[in-house]
Write a protein that binds this DNA or RNA. Structure first.
Lengths: 263, 263
DNA sequence: GAGTGGTCTAGACCACTGT
DNA sequence: CAGTGGTCTAGACCACTCC
């Protein structure tokens, strides 16, 4: 076993033994750890890199290496879809109370900061055309949403939602980003166009973040992102919305409930 | 921008430009890349480490650095649960045809290699006691399953399933690992005890793998694991099975379909 | 045994954080 | 400014793969 692995194992064990508590600073790379383990800086750093990738240690330039604190989880359930559908036909006042994200997180609207950017000149690429079952180059509305906690700097969620322009242009309010956040969400927006959702398909994968994603979500090295691709089908059999959501893997938990028919 | 980042960007761009195809070997670290970029070995290796973490490059000791080929995805849907329930009351012959994993992957039984290890002396820890709503220390049956492709070395799936011992001891066959793989799966096993499932809750998170998980799943550095925690509820309101599934994040896609009630 | 990546060293200098 | 982590060098030797 390599020296750096032995050092990583030792530090990990000492953290688990409680020698250093969450939030504590570890001994300095130079000169403390190098002299304690009688090794060179590179080797100490390689060991700490392992622990950082595992999420055990937080490396902070200029300040030190810290034992990572447990993170605040963001939970997202698929029951939000039925919940949102039930609200889609309620009064605006009722809809204005809370949104689906608040429903999931149990937070008030004021705890969250929300931003929306629209692009109504977007043209369908091959993948979107295939999913929507529309011709390549069909005009789409692209909506980019970012949500973050008021006290934090980085969003915990970046969503890019696509709608077919011709399908929604009947209600010009839907093209106006200043109307966001829309009370009642997308399902109410579609309801104004007499579109009712029948089912929602969600596909989940994980992968290392791209450079842009790391920056936008404020991710440390070694943290992966969860990619959620949501496709909404209407009761008349059309694909009416496609949404790609990027979530930080280390603080997101998704819940899916599957009900089974009775015997 | 650091030198190693510029080198990583350059190599990434050259791969995307098609200068090296998937499967191709990159120039050697020493002396090719160090002289081409006029830098030291450490810096070249740091750049390649970035690309390996992104999944763009495959580092192979003693052979070289290779452009990674697109991976074979393993898809897992939640529709498998209803599918398995429908089969649970069919004849053994019908059940013997395929299992849920084959249903998802579209492969034949013979393409997959399956192993099962049982421990019927397991006692409920705090978390399992809480989930099952049973006293701490209640006797459980722990079943560990590994599934892999016949031509591959590492499993693509490690599942640890828990059942309450007293709930299932009525059918001694369920304690016998040599009966696995059981035709019809867990839902048929429960059916032999007159237990019918009502709903299944699945929670998904992603995190960096532990050391053991990397080894078991044969993961490269930087690849995260998807953790799926499945809780099965019976029609009489009990939690009857808890299952923790570990999946390689870079080759797994999970699909969840949510049906909505009609207006 | 030749070729390749993996580990390690000792030391230099840069970049960031806080006082 | 002092203290800390981040990058980089030049070179040595080890471990793995394949002929």
């Amino acid at each position: 076993m390599a020296k750096y692995e032995r050092i990583a194992d030792d530090i990990r064990a000492r953290i688990q033994a409680g020698e250093w508590q969450p939030g504590d600073r570890l001994p300095t790379e130079t000169p403390d750890l190098t002299t304690h383990y009688k090794t060179s800086l590179n080797t100490v750093r390689q060991a700490l890199g392992v622990l950082a990738a595992e999420g055990v240690v937080d490396k902070v330039h200029g300040r030190g290496n810290f034992v990572r604190k447990p993170r605040k989880l963001v939970v997202r359930t698929n029951e939000r879809h039925q919940w949102e559908k039930d609200r889609a036909r309620q009064s605006e006042e009722a809809r204005r109370q809370t949104g689906a994200t608040e429903h999931d997180t149990g937070l008030a609207v004021s705890d969250l900061v929300f931003s929306a950017v629209f692009d109504d000149e977007m043209l369908a690429d091959e993948e979107l055309a295939e999913t929507f079952q529309i011709p390549l180059g069909t005009r789409l509305l692209e909506r980019t949403y970012r949500t973050r906690y008021r006290e934090e700097d980085e969003p915990f969620n970046i969503a890019r939602s696509y709608l077919v322009y011709d399908m929604i242009k009947g209600n010009p309010d839907l093209l106006d980003p200043t109307k966001e956040p829309w009370p009642g969400g997308t399902q109410n927006q579609l309801h104004t166009l007499d579109i009712e959702l029948d089912r929602i398909e969600e596909r989940v994968t994980a992968r290392p973040p791209t450079v842009e994603e790391s920056e936008e979500l404020g991710l440390k090295a070694g943290v992966s992102v969860l990619i959620l691709r949501k496709v909404s089908h209407s009761t008349d059999g059309r694909v009416v919305e496609v949404s790609n959501v990027t979530l930080p893997g280390n603080r997101t938990e998704m819940v899916f409930m599957t009900s089974l028919t009775r015997w």
